[in-house]
């Protein structure tokens, strides 16, 4: 048997026996789910959590398609205007990772905020403690377009001593 015959047999065995293996759930195309991800850095580190106002019940990241208004987060979520991390992120830490599944694509996110829940009322007792801003100026939130086949990353700095303007 010639060399090329061996190579052909081995190549066929290898290439026909594998189909790529695992893939993200609910997808049979090379395009899986799309996420907005990023790292939240708490300025001053763990020590600066003492400057957090009121209690810290939960920390979430909320991404808005339209600029949030005084009607509150809940309405934005119910109307599909906002996407969020469903469970609380860690607090009393130097930094934290978040990822939010974005089901509608492409979409422009105009406001990404880190929300501190400071009481039992999920809808009313929320405060924005950090916003995504590529300029570093937390009074000027930046927008980001979420697309397939793209790394959608928005890192946020939280400064408890200099909170951003409250949109609610």
């Amino acid at each position: 048997m010639k060399l090329h015959t061996y190579l052909l047999i081995v190549s066929l065995l290898i290439f026909t026996s594998c189909n790529g293996g695992l893939e993200p759930n609910n997808t049979h195309s090379p395009i899986g789910k799309t996420y907005l991800t990023g790292i939240i850095t708490y300025k001053g580190g763990k020590a600066n959590w003492k400057f957090a106002q009121d209690s810290v019940v939960a920390i979430r990241v909320v991404a808005f398609k339209h600029y949030p208004d005084s009607s509150g987060i809940l309405k934005d979520i119910l109307t599909g205007n906002a996407f969020f991390t469903p469970t609380s992120l860690a607090f009393n830490v130097d930094s934290s990772l978040y990822s939010i599944e974005i089901p509608e694509l492409p979409v422009e996110i105009v406001y990404i905020g880190v929300a501190q829940q400071y009481g039992a009322d999920l809808t009313k007792q929320q405060r924005v403690i950090g916003v995504y801003s590529i300029t570093g100026d937390n009074t000027k939130p930046s927008s980001i377009i979420i697309e397939r086949d793209k790394l959608n990353r928005a890192d946020i700095i939280v400064d408890f001593e200099n909170l951003p303007p409250q949109p609610f």
Partner: peptide, 17 residues
């Protein structure tokens, strides 16, 4: 992992420090 959908990320809320 976070999930199979997000197999290259740790669970949401992981303390990165």
């Amino acid at each position: 992992w976070n999930s199979l959908d997000s197999a290259t990320r740790p669970p949401t809320g992981t303390n990165l420090n």
